[in-house]
Amino acid sequence: MPNPFNQQIIEEFRTNGGRVGGPFEGARLLLLTTTGARTGTPHTTPVAYYPDGADRVLVIASAGGSPQHPDWYRNLLAHPRVTVENGVFTYEAEALVLEGAERDDVFARAVEADPGWAEYQAKTERVIPVVALREIPVAGPPSFAASSPGEAVKLVHRAFRRELALIRQEFAASGTALGAQLRINCLTLCQGLHLHHTGEDTALFPFAAGRDPGLAPALDRLRDEHERIAALLEELRRAVSAEDADPRTVLTEVDRLTGELEAHLAHEEEILVPVLEAASASAS
C-alpha cells in the first residue's frame, strides 16, 4: 500500500519539475522506481542524492538509522535495473552497491557534507549501504518531464539555477574548508553545463536557424555567450581542482558564473522558447 507521505511528495515533485516543500525543500531529491523483490510490481520512492559526475548519482540507504534496510534497497538488490526521475529527465539506470574502500570514501564524503548521516549510522548496527545509480545510455532524444520543447528548455534552465543556488548555500555552510563532496558538486555542474551547451550548439541552434533564418544574429550572440561561460567553467574547474583550494576563491568563481549564466539563460529563453513552441504547435 502506498505511503501517503511519500505519495504527496511524489505528486508535488512531478507537478513542480522536481521542486517540493516541507522537510525536503531545497534538497537534492529524485524519484527512484524499483521492482518489488517479492511482488515484481513497481514502487516509487523519493530519495535524497549526491552528484557524482555526469552519468551517475549516489543514494544512501539510511532508512533514518533503522535496524533494517529500506524496501527500495532490498528491491534493487533483486532487480538492479531502476528508473530515475530528477525533475527534468526520466531515465533507466543500473544500481551498483558500493563496497569496501569505495563505499567508505563516499560515505565519509556524505558525512562531511551532512553530519546527519553519521548520526544515522550510529543508531544502527548494520553498515548503511551506498548505491551508485548509473544512467543506461539509449538512442534518441531524452525523456523530458515537460509538455512541450519550450517547457523542456525552461525545465533544464531551472535545474541549473537550482543547483547553483544549492552550491552557494553549501559554500555558506562550509566555513574555511572545501569539502570533497562540494568539490564534486561543482565539477558535476561544470560537466552538465558543458554537455548542455554542446547539445545546443550542435542540434538546437541549427534547428532554430532552420525554422527562422532571421534568428542568425541572435544565435551567434548565444554562441558567444556559450564561449564566455565555457571560460568561466574552466576557471571554476581550476579553482576547485587546486590541491590547496581556497573556498573564498572558488565561491568568487561560482558567483561570476552565476551572474553570467543567469543573464544567458534569460536571453536564451527569450529567443528559443517561442520558436520551439511554434514548431511544436505546427507539428501537432
Score class of each variant (00 low, 15 high):
Met1Asn: 06
Pro4His: 10
Asn6Pro: 00
Gln8Tyr: 05
Glu11Gln: 14
Gly17Ile: 07
Gly18Lys: 09
Gly18Tyr: 05
Arg19Trp: 01
Arg19Thr: 10
Arg19Val: 11
Val20Ile: 10
Gly22Thr: 02
Pro23His: 12
Gly26Trp: 11
Leu29Ile: 11
Leu30Trp: 03
Leu31Asn: 06
Thr33Ile: 10
Gly36Asp: 11
Gly36Arg: 13
Gly36Tyr: 12
Ala37Arg: 15
Gly40Pro: 07
Gly40Leu: 11
Thr41Trp: 05
His43Lys: 15
Thr45Val: 13
Tyr49Phe: 15
Tyr49Glu: 01
Tyr50Met: 14
Asp52Phe: 12
Gly53Ser: 09
Ala54Gln: 09
Leu58Asp: 00
Ser62Tyr: 00
Ser66Trp: 01
Gln68Trp: 04
His69Trp: 04
Pro70Leu: 07
Trp72Phe: 13
Asn75Val: 04
Leu76Cys: 08
Leu77Ser: 06
Phe89Gly: 01
Tyr91Cys: 05
Glu92Ile: 03
Ala101Ile: 05
Asp105Gln: 15
Val111Glu: 02
Trp117Ser: 00
Ala118Pro: 06
Ala118Arg: 14
Tyr120Trp: 07
Thr124Asn: 07
Arg126Asp: 05
Val127Gly: 03
Ile128Asn: 00
Val130Met: 04
Val130Asp: 00
Ala132Asp: 01
Arg134Ala: 12
Ala139Cys: 01
Gly140Arg: 14
Gly140Phe: 12
Ser143Lys: 13
Ser148Arg: 13
Gly150Lys: 13
Ala152Phe: 06
Leu155Met: 10
Val156Gly: 02
Arg161Tyr: 06
Glu163Arg: 14
Glu163Ala: 07
Leu164Trp: 03
Gln169Tyr: 05
Ala173Lys: 15
Ala173Met: 06
Ala177Gln: 13
Ala177Pro: 00
Leu178Cys: 02
Ala180Asp: 08
Arg183Val: 05
Asn185Asp: 15
Asn185His: 15
Leu189Val: 05
Cys190Gln: 04
Gln191Arg: 12
Gly192Asp: 12
Leu193Asp: 03
His194Trp: 10
Thr198Val: 13
Gly199Val: 12
Thr202Asp: 14
Ala203Tyr: 12
Ala203Leu: 14
Arg211Asn: 04
Arg211Ala: 14
Asp212Phe: 09
Asp212Gly: 08
Gly214Ala: 15
Leu215Thr: 08
Ala216Asn: 12
Asp220Phe: 08
Glu225Val: 00
His226Val: 04
Arg228Val: 10
Leu233Val: 09
Leu236His: 04
Ser241Asn: 09
Glu243Ile: 03
Asp244Arg: 10
Asp246Val: 09
Pro247Tyr: 07
Leu251Ile: 01
Thr252Gly: 11
Val254Arg: 02
Asp255Tyr: 03
Arg256Phe: 01
Arg256Cys: 01
Leu265Cys: 02
Leu265Gly: 01
Glu268Ala: 07
Glu269Arg: 10
Glu269Cys: 08
Ile271Asn: 05
Leu272Trp: 08
Leu272Asn: 03
Val273Leu: 08
Val275Lys: 06
Ala278Gly: 09
Ala281Arg: 15
Ala283Cys: 01
Ser284Tyr: 06
